[in-house]
Design a protein around this nucleic acid. Structure first.
Length: 127
DNA sequence: CGCCTGACGAAAC
DNA sequence: GGTTTCGCCAGGC
């Protein structure tokens, strides 16, 4: 494990090969994939974990490409600060998100996660 | 280079 | 608690 990922280091340009550095998106997916089953987190938490605290919107935006990324990214586990399933409209079906969450063991009521605070998984705290 | 958009967040009403 | 407004930053055009 020579690759020690420390949140302190955060070089923007890391693709001198001329390749398009999707570092931002990639990091978002990486964190989301590490979300344990039955847990949820917020966009702002991920953004803060990446160091771009103010770019909470960019996190959700990155999720837009999560559908085409493999392995599949459990975007359903990522909700807003209020625990609301704001991204459900971007899924295949608006019900797919809560279905996946329920399958993970997360109760969803009225488009929002039940006991979101209790199920909240903070990447900054866990990683 | 400038303007608009956006799966957010916090504050105000 | 729900709705509206502003601020945030990166990407698309």
């Amino acid at each position: 494990m020579a690759t020690k990922r420390t949140k302190t280091e955060k070089p923007r340009s890391v693709a001198p090969s001329g390749r398009k550095d999707e570092n931002f998106f990639e990091q978002v997916f990486e964190v989301v994939r590490q979300i344990p089953k039955g847990r949820v987190t917020s966009y702002g938490a991920i953004a803060a974990c990446l160091g771009t605290k103010g770019s909470s919107r960019m996190v959700g935006w990155a999720m837009n490409g999560s559908h085409r990324v493999r392995p599949k990214v459990p975007a359903q586990r990522v909700v807003n600060r209020n625990g609301m399933l704001t991204g459900k409209f971007h899924f295949e079906t608006i019900t797919k998100m809560e279905e996946l969450l329920k399958k993970d063991g997360v109760q969803v009521k009225n488009d929002k996660v039940v006991d979101f605070r209790k199920l909240f998984w903070d990447p900054l705290l866990e990683l």
